[in-house]
Nucleic acid binder design. Sequence first.
DNA 1: AGACTGACCTGAACGC
DNA 2: TGCGTTCAGGTCAGTC
Length: 296
Amino acid sequence: MPELPEVEVVRRGLADHVQGRRVVRVDVFHPRSVRRHVAGDLDFAGRLVGHTVGGVRRRGKYLWLELDDAAPGSDALLGHLGMSGQLLLQDESAPDPVHLRVRVVFADGGPELRFVDQRTFGGLSVDELVGADAADSGETVPRAVAHIARDPLDPAFDVEATVSAMRRKRTGLKRALLDQTLVSGIGNIYADEALWRARLHGARPTAGLTRAAARRVLAAAAEVMTEALGQGGTSFDTLYVNVNGQSGYFDRSLAVYGQADRPCPRCGTAVLRESFMNRSSYFCPSCQPRPRRPHP
DNA sequence: AGACTGACCTGAACGC
DNA sequence: TGCGTTCAGGTCAGTC
């Protein structure tokens, strides 16, 4: 399940291996994988061919390859891995993976960029770059990413503004952590881990949080994702760009996620699993007591 | 306007 | 053995 650290691992791998390369051919094998490109797969391919990959950027779980340059109005190849997406660099002689959805071929004859996605929740599109925020920083993001908040590892991430925005919400803390327009990059796994580190229950109403508690959980999220990145980063020295986290090492370090009935690493109490938003939440009932007035 | 739900998708694991 | 059910969960259109 790619969340911020996994996407960042991919970004680094791509930056090392596709920057400066010119696209000569694009094959789209599954229309759903380019559904965000409303002009269709032919237009998608046409906007890539002939262009050279510039910088490789990321915000939250979104990743994009600047085409030619980063100026507003220029195009970028935007990608989201969804649940099962992978961006692989593979030699043209390597057999096509079963779930190969899009192939990008480069002029130098080197390894192809292959978008592989079993469940097709992810996707690619070509999107125009726009100014990142009102301030004239010169930073640009694809139009489709403009509504996504900065993530906790972004140097320009504003903790105090995020704390204020969080406390203005009328929702539960875990919902808020998963809200990509409030703070991006956090998914179900790192939300549970951050809540555990901050000793807070996900049903705590955001409006009732102290600023200190809100800061604590955001700091915990940044910390756990930084640690995961450190471990995920060990495996991308080859042309194979690992994306889905399956071969990452961080799962050994998870305190509560997926650890139902196992002892909490801090106090030994059995970790609980609960259903939440059609998925699962894991927490320690001792370290993270349910609030007296939980947000439903 | 903001909060929330359901739909999308495939394959593995499980129960009977 | 096989069939049906559940689970994994990121995002956004649609609803209230």
